[in-house]
Simulated assay, not measured.
Amino acid sequence: MVTSRGAHQERSRERREALLRAAIELIAQSGTRAVTHRAVSARAGLPPAAAGYYFQTAQELIEQALRFHVRERSATLAALIESIAQAAKTARELGERVVEALIRGQSGVSVAQYEVYLEATRNPALREVVQESMSAFEQVAAGHLERLGVREPAQAAKAFVAIADGFALHRMASPLPYDEDFDLMVKTLAGMILAHRMDRAALDRLLG
Protein backbone atom coordinates (compact mmCIF):
# COMPACT_ATOMS: atom_id res chain seq x y z
CA MET A 1 0.00 0.00 0.00
CA VAL A 2 1.39 3.41 -0.98
CA THR A 3 1.11 6.03 1.76
CA SER A 4 0.38 9.68 1.08
CA ARG A 5 3.94 10.47 2.16
CA GLY A 6 5.32 7.87 -0.26
CA ALA A 7 3.21 9.25 -3.09
CA HIS A 8 4.45 12.78 -2.31
CA GLN A 9 8.08 11.62 -2.36
CA GLU A 10 7.54 9.87 -5.69
CA ARG A 11 5.99 13.00 -7.22
CA SER A 12 8.89 15.04 -5.90
CA ARG A 13 11.42 12.65 -7.43
CA GLU A 14 9.60 12.72 -10.76
CA ARG A 15 9.54 16.52 -10.76
CA ARG A 16 13.23 16.73 -9.96
CA GLU A 17 14.10 14.31 -12.75
CA ALA A 18 11.88 16.25 -15.17
CA LEU A 19 13.81 19.41 -14.32
CA LEU A 20 17.17 17.68 -14.80
CA ARG A 21 16.10 16.30 -18.18
CA ALA A 22 14.81 19.73 -19.19
CA ALA A 23 18.17 21.28 -18.24
CA ILE A 24 20.03 18.73 -20.39
CA GLU A 25 17.73 19.51 -23.33
CA LEU A 26 18.36 23.25 -22.96
CA ILE A 27 22.13 22.73 -22.73
CA ALA A 28 22.06 20.61 -25.89
CA GLN A 29 19.96 23.19 -27.72
CA SER A 30 21.53 26.47 -26.61
CA GLY A 31 24.46 25.84 -24.25
CA THR A 32 24.79 26.27 -20.49
CA ARG A 33 23.86 29.96 -20.58
CA ALA A 34 20.32 28.93 -21.49
CA VAL A 35 19.90 27.25 -18.10
CA THR A 36 17.89 29.48 -15.78
CA HIS A 37 15.36 28.45 -13.17
CA ARG A 38 12.50 29.94 -15.16
CA ALA A 39 13.59 28.43 -18.50
CA VAL A 40 14.10 24.96 -17.05
CA SER A 41 10.77 25.04 -15.23
CA ALA A 42 8.99 26.08 -18.43
CA ARG A 43 10.75 23.38 -20.44
CA ALA A 44 9.68 20.76 -17.89
CA GLY A 45 6.08 22.01 -17.98
CA LEU A 46 6.18 22.99 -14.31
CA PRO A 47 5.40 26.25 -12.44
CA PRO A 48 8.07 29.01 -12.79
CA ALA A 49 9.31 28.57 -9.22
CA ALA A 50 9.74 24.78 -9.45
CA ALA A 51 13.43 24.71 -10.38
CA GLY A 52 14.29 27.17 -7.61
CA TYR A 53 12.61 24.89 -5.07
CA TYR A 54 14.96 22.00 -5.90
CA PHE A 55 18.15 23.86 -6.92
CA GLN A 56 19.44 27.03 -5.28
CA THR A 57 21.43 28.22 -8.31
CA ALA A 58 21.64 27.62 -12.04
CA GLN A 59 25.19 26.35 -11.47
CA GLU A 60 23.92 23.66 -9.09
CA LEU A 61 21.23 22.72 -11.60
CA ILE A 62 23.79 22.35 -14.41
CA GLU A 63 26.08 20.21 -12.25
CA GLN A 64 23.26 17.95 -11.03
CA ALA A 65 21.86 17.63 -14.56
CA LEU A 66 25.23 16.48 -15.90
CA ARG A 67 25.66 13.98 -13.07
CA PHE A 68 22.17 12.63 -13.75
CA HIS A 69 22.86 12.42 -17.48
CA VAL A 70 26.19 10.68 -16.94
CA ARG A 71 24.70 8.09 -14.59
CA GLU A 72 22.06 7.26 -17.18
CA ARG A 73 24.54 7.16 -20.05
CA SER A 74 27.02 5.03 -18.06
CA ALA A 75 24.28 2.52 -17.26
CA THR A 76 23.22 2.46 -20.91
CA LEU A 77 26.79 2.00 -22.09
CA ALA A 78 27.52 -0.74 -19.55
CA ALA A 79 24.39 -2.68 -20.51
CA LEU A 80 25.13 -2.22 -24.20
CA ILE A 81 28.73 -3.45 -23.97
CA GLU A 82 27.72 -6.36 -21.73
CA SER A 83 25.09 -7.53 -24.20
CA ILE A 84 27.55 -7.18 -27.08
CA ALA A 85 30.28 -9.03 -25.16
CA GLN A 86 27.94 -11.96 -24.48
CA ALA A 87 26.95 -12.24 -28.14
CA ALA A 88 30.37 -11.67 -29.75
CA LYS A 89 32.41 -14.79 -30.55
CA THR A 90 35.76 -13.08 -31.14
CA ALA A 91 37.59 -9.96 -29.99
CA ARG A 92 37.25 -8.55 -33.51
CA GLU A 93 33.49 -9.06 -33.49
CA LEU A 94 33.27 -7.44 -30.06
CA GLY A 95 35.21 -4.40 -31.25
CA GLU A 96 33.22 -4.02 -34.45
CA ARG A 97 29.88 -4.27 -32.64
CA VAL A 98 30.96 -1.68 -30.06
CA VAL A 99 32.04 0.70 -32.83
CA GLU A 100 28.77 0.17 -34.68
CA ALA A 101 26.82 0.98 -31.51
CA LEU A 102 28.86 4.13 -30.88
CA ILE A 103 28.40 5.37 -34.44
CA ARG A 104 24.66 4.74 -34.42
CA GLY A 105 24.34 6.64 -31.15
CA GLN A 106 23.19 3.70 -29.05
CA SER A 107 25.48 4.74 -26.20
CA GLY A 108 23.46 7.88 -25.45
CA VAL A 109 26.11 10.43 -26.46
CA SER A 110 24.61 13.91 -26.42
CA VAL A 111 25.55 17.43 -27.44
CA ALA A 112 24.84 18.52 -23.86
CA GLN A 113 27.72 16.46 -22.52
CA TYR A 114 30.23 18.21 -24.77
CA GLU A 115 28.69 21.62 -24.13
CA VAL A 116 29.45 21.13 -20.45
CA TYR A 117 32.96 19.86 -21.22
CA LEU A 118 33.61 23.06 -23.17
CA GLU A 119 32.11 25.26 -20.47
CA ALA A 120 34.42 23.61 -17.93
CA THR A 121 37.42 25.16 -19.72
CA ARG A 122 36.03 28.57 -18.70
CA ASN A 123 34.36 27.62 -15.44
CA PRO A 124 36.59 25.80 -12.93
CA ALA A 125 33.54 24.91 -10.82
CA LEU A 126 32.46 22.46 -13.52
CA ARG A 127 35.79 20.67 -13.84
CA GLU A 128 35.13 18.31 -10.93
CA VAL A 129 31.83 17.11 -12.37
CA VAL A 130 33.39 16.69 -15.82
CA GLN A 131 36.16 14.60 -14.30
CA GLU A 132 33.54 12.49 -12.54
CA SER A 133 31.74 11.92 -15.83
CA MET A 134 34.90 10.89 -17.65
CA SER A 135 35.83 8.53 -14.81
CA ALA A 136 32.40 6.90 -14.98
CA PHE A 137 32.82 6.11 -18.68
CA GLU A 138 36.38 4.90 -18.14
CA GLN A 139 35.23 2.46 -15.46
CA VAL A 140 32.71 0.97 -17.88
CA ALA A 141 35.40 0.49 -20.54
CA ALA A 142 38.20 -0.77 -18.28
CA GLY A 143 36.71 -4.15 -17.39
CA HIS A 144 36.05 -5.07 -21.00
CA LEU A 145 39.47 -3.90 -22.14
CA GLU A 146 41.00 -6.13 -19.48
CA ARG A 147 39.15 -9.09 -21.02
CA LEU A 148 40.88 -8.25 -24.31
CA GLY A 149 44.26 -8.67 -22.64
CA VAL A 150 45.38 -5.05 -22.39
CA ARG A 151 47.99 -4.08 -19.86
CA GLU A 152 46.94 -1.42 -17.35
CA PRO A 153 43.26 -1.39 -18.40
CA ALA A 154 42.56 1.80 -16.47
CA GLN A 155 45.05 3.69 -18.64
CA ALA A 156 43.77 2.02 -21.80
CA ALA A 157 40.24 3.05 -20.83
CA LYS A 158 41.31 6.70 -20.77
CA ALA A 159 42.53 6.31 -24.35
CA PHE A 160 39.33 4.49 -25.36
CA VAL A 161 37.09 7.26 -23.99
CA ALA A 162 39.25 9.99 -25.57
CA ILE A 163 39.04 8.27 -28.97
CA ALA A 164 35.29 7.67 -28.70
CA ASP A 165 34.69 11.28 -27.64
CA GLY A 166 36.87 12.62 -30.43
CA PHE A 167 35.06 10.64 -33.09
CA ALA A 168 31.69 11.63 -31.59
CA LEU A 169 32.55 15.33 -31.75
CA HIS A 170 33.61 15.06 -35.39
CA ARG A 171 30.47 13.05 -36.12
CA MET A 172 28.30 15.86 -34.72
CA ALA A 173 30.11 18.65 -36.57
CA SER A 174 31.11 16.99 -39.85
CA PRO A 175 29.80 13.44 -40.20
CA LEU A 176 31.56 10.99 -42.49
CA PRO A 177 29.83 8.33 -44.58
CA TYR A 178 29.04 5.38 -42.29
CA ASP A 179 31.49 2.93 -43.90
CA GLU A 180 34.39 5.40 -43.72
CA ASP A 181 33.59 6.34 -40.12
CA PHE A 182 33.32 2.67 -39.14
CA ASP A 183 36.61 1.70 -40.81
CA LEU A 184 38.56 4.60 -39.32
CA MET A 185 37.25 4.00 -35.81
CA VAL A 186 37.86 0.23 -35.90
CA LYS A 187 41.45 0.75 -37.05
CA THR A 188 42.09 3.48 -34.48
CA LEU A 189 40.71 1.46 -31.56
CA ALA A 190 42.45 -1.71 -32.76
CA GLY A 191 45.75 0.13 -32.85
CA MET A 192 45.20 1.49 -29.36
CA ILE A 193 44.31 -1.97 -27.99
CA LEU A 194 47.32 -3.61 -29.66
CA ALA A 195 49.64 -0.95 -28.25
CA HIS A 196 48.27 -1.50 -24.75
CA ARG A 197 48.69 -5.28 -25.06
CA MET A 198 52.41 -4.95 -25.85
CA ASP A 199 55.10 -4.64 -23.23
CA ARG A 200 57.14 -1.44 -23.15
CA ALA A 201 60.19 -2.93 -24.88
CA ALA A 202 58.13 -4.30 -27.77
CA LEU A 203 56.30 -1.00 -28.15
CA ASP A 204 59.56 0.94 -28.16
CA ARG A 205 60.90 -1.36 -30.89
CA LEU A 206 57.76 -0.89 -32.94
CA LEU A 207 58.03 2.89 -32.65
CA GLY A 208 61.64 2.74 -33.73
Rank of each mutant, 00 (worst) to 15 (best):
V161A: 01
A49E: 15
A51H: 02
M192S: 11
A142Y: 01
R33E: 10
A65C: 10
A39V: 09
A112T: 03
I81D: 03
G166Q: 05
I24R: 02
I193M: 11
A154I: 07
A156Y: 04
R21V: 11
E14T: 02
R92G: 09
E180R: 14
A91W: 06
E180S: 12
I103N: 00
E93D: 14
F55C: 05
Q59Y: 02
R71Q: 11
P124K: 09
S74M: 08
P124I: 13
A88M: 10
E138G: 03
A22T: 05
G105W: 05
V161S: 01
R13S: 04
R197D: 00
E72V: 07
L169K: 00
T121M: 12
R13H: 12
H8F: 14
A112P: 00
L94I: 01
G143I: 04
E93S: 06
A78K: 09
Q113D: 11
V98Q: 01
I62P: 02
V150F: 00
A49M: 14
S135K: 09
R38Y: 12
E93F: 12
A87C: 09
T3E: 10
V99R: 05
F137P: 02
V116Q: 01
A159S: 12
I163Q: 05
E100W: 15
T90W: 06
R43E: 03
L194W: 05
Q56H: 14
A142L: 06
E25K: 13
Q29W: 13
D165E: 14
A101Q: 03
A91V: 03
L94T: 01
S83G: 15
T188H: 11
T90D: 00
A39L: 11
A58L: 06
L20D: 03
L26R: 05
S74H: 08
A101W: 12
A22K: 02
P153V: 00
V99P: 04
H37M: 14
T76R: 10
A78V: 03
L206V: 13
A87K: 15
R13N: 06
A195S: 12
R92V: 07
R11S: 13
M172Q: 06
G208N: 08
L102Y: 09
H144V: 01
A162E: 13
E93N: 07
R67T: 04
V116I: 15
A42T: 05
G105N: 12
D183C: 07
Q59V: 09
G45T: 13
E14Y: 03
E96I: 12
Q106C: 05
G208V: 08
E60Y: 08
A201P: 00
R33I: 03
D181A: 15
Q56A: 12
D204Y: 10
R97F: 08
A22L: 07
Q86R: 15
E63L: 08
Y53M: 05
G191N: 07
S133I: 08
H69Q: 04
E115L: 11
R38I: 11
H8T: 08
G208R: 10
Q155M: 11
A28T: 09
G191Q: 06
L20N: 04
G52E: 02
E119D: 04
E14F: 07
V70N: 03
A22G: 00
R127P: 01
Y178E: 08
V129P: 02
K89I: 08
G6S: 13
Q113G: 03
T32R: 08
V2I: 14
Y117W: 13
G143Q: 07
F160L: 07
A39F: 10
A28V: 10
